[in-house]
């Protein structure tokens, strides 16, 4: 295969997508391994697909970060049809003139690096829907 997702809620393949743990009782969605639901306390979850498109709810352009983090980059919060997702906004200049609140974005994958066994880690980001056409 030669590829591994950066996080286990990213599913690679022809149509990469994010998946969430959805509480079967109240519908709250989470991306981490769960013990129980923070909204209702129940303990049953099912894996659901998250919409591949969304709206940029918030962003910042990070110029200073920990050692080893490439800057500047755009960090964003995306509303994917009701599921709130954190991710970088990619394929756009890291500049407030090119990134705007309410912008339509879609999921894309981003190479992270290759390990000593030749396996490539693949992450995700969101790119503007308009810019690439």
């Amino acid at each position: 295969m030669g590829q591994i997702p950066l996080v286990d809620y990213l599913v690679l393949g022809d149509e990469p997508r994010l998946v969430a743990n959805e509480c079967t009782s109240c519908g709250a969605r989470y991306f981490d391994r769960r013990n129980a639901c923070a909204r209702c306390g129940r303990q049953e979850f099912e894996t659901v697909d998250v919409s591949r498109t969304g709206t940029l709810r918030s962003f910042t352009i990070v110029h200073f970060a920990a050692k080893g983090v490439d800057v500047p980059f755009v960090a964003g919060v995306v509303d994917c049809a009701g599921t709130i997702v954190s991710g970088n906004v990619v394929n756009v200049p890291p500049d407030p003139r090119h990134v705007s609140l309410g912008m339509d974005v879609r999921l894309t994958t981003v190479p992270v690096g290759t390990d000593t066994a030749g396996v490539m880690a693949v992450g995700f980001g969101f790119e503007p829907v308009a810019e690439r056409e």
């Binding site: 990070v62 080893g68 960090a75 954190s86």
Partner: peptide, 21 residues
């Protein structure tokens, strides 16, 4: 070394800067 998923997100690398900030 090699990528090993760890933590509650099964992350193979620290996420700061790769998945938001």
């Amino acid at each position: 070394g090699t990528w090993v998923p760890s933590g509650r997100y099964g992350a193979v690398a620290p996420l700061d800067g790769l998945v938001g900030t």
